[in-house]
Amino acid sequence: MKHFKVNQNQTNQKQVFGFKKCIATCAMLFSVWFVLQAQTVRYVDNNQGAPTASGLNYTSVQAAVNASAAGDIIYIQPSPNGYGDINMTKQLSIYGLGHNPSLNAGQVATVNNILFRSANASGSKISGLNIYGIYLDNGTYDNHDIVITNNRIVYVAGNSTTSKANNVIISGNFFYHDSSVAIDNVNSQNWIISNNTFTRTNAYWDYEMFFRFNNTTLFNNNIVLSHQNGDNNQRIEIFRSCSGTQISNNIFLFRGTSVSNFNLGSNSALNFQNNLTYGFNSTLDALSGTNNIDNADPQFVNFVQNSSLNNSNNDYHIQGGSPAENAGTDGNNLGVFNGNYPFSIRGYPTELPYLTDFVIYNNIISAGTSLNINVKANANINN
């Protein structure tokens, strides 16, 4: 835990409001960390009353992207206003504060689509944002080694060409969608999809979550929650047109009725190992594969019934004595904390410090007087 005390003289304002100061202090904290890095750091803030664009400060993410050099870092401030699409044109690291933060009145940095379609942006990292779609589907440019972590996402699309968007890591994210596919691997190679949570809220039986996974795709250590009801044969579709995929150490939860089988779809040779299934309102057939645990409550430390998987009151650590305890292929617990992965239900990027407490003792002041702030923050997990 790090503690900060900031005294700031105000010479051009008679009133200072806590939200704006919280935003500024977040930038200060991240600057302290980023100054140790070699890359240029740019800040984007489209809040009402935010400073106009100048120097390294921007109101548009795309303007910051266009001004950056390969390897630079962009930090996007939480805002009630969306930031639109991002067209990736080079290798960049783009960070938000987290997709479900405890401060800033829960505000997040929201972007629409992140498009890898105009240049080689291999090695880019996206973290801590609220995102609709990430598209790695351009057939002209290489976009390998992309890291997508600690975001709230609706959809990620791979590439139809086997040589254009490979070695992608998708981890620590919260996927939430009503009806569409969550991840479409297409023909991309060597994707690792691990330590994420996935929620499908629509009850219809054939709205698959995972599409066109191949034999180079690893789907491990995830928690999947489906609200789908079974068809006339008590089947639902989770995977579709997937072939040869390794599926291990996951927890599959089902809230729908009349569900006995979730492997409906044109799949082949899926390798289910050391997974757990549990139906809240139905009994599932034994899962094909080896060392799977059927119809067993995973016994999370805390799970709020009928809540979203990103409910901050949920705790997906496994209780002692749970059937998921030490049940993984590696002898560790099943689910998102497998292998001591630093899963954050709030989506805090592991590279950044994050605020845990922010108190302004005199939030309305006269010009020339001191602003007294007490800030507490956790150091970034990587350090």
Rank of each mutant, 00 (worst) to 15 (best):
G331L: 09
L352Y: 06
V6P: 00
N190C: 00
S312H: 07
Y95M: 07
I148D: 05
N263P: 00
F280V: 01
S268C: 05
I131Y: 00
T11I: 13
S31Q: 13
A379F: 06
A27Q: 15
N46A: 08
S308G: 10
T217I: 06
L129I: 02
T369Y: 13
G265V: 03
Q48Y: 06
D357W: 00
V304L: 12
F358G: 09
V304A: 14
V186N: 15
I236C: 08
L36D: 13
N47A: 08
A69I: 05
G96V: 00
L287N: 01
S160K: 05
A379R: 10
N281Y: 08
D315P: 06
N333R: 03
C242V: 03
N261P: 05
P323Y: 03
S344L: 02
S241E: 15
F337N: 12
S60L: 08
T197I: 15
G98C: 07
T11N: 15
L284Q: 08
N190W: 12
Y135W: 12
A157Q: 15
F337D: 02
T40C: 08
P323C: 04
A70C: 04
N138R: 02
T52W: 03
N221T: 06
E325D: 10
N281M: 12
F254L: 11
P323F: 08
F219E: 09
M1A: 11
P353L: 02
F239R: 01
N340A: 14
I153T: 07
T140S: 14
Q299R: 14
T52N: 11
S241M: 10
A70L: 02
I114A: 09
N104D: 11
Q15N: 12
S31C: 03
F252N: 07
T140P: 11
N166K: 05
S266Q: 14
K164D: 06
N271C: 04
H177L: 10
N112W: 00
L225W: 00
G279M: 07
G49C: 11
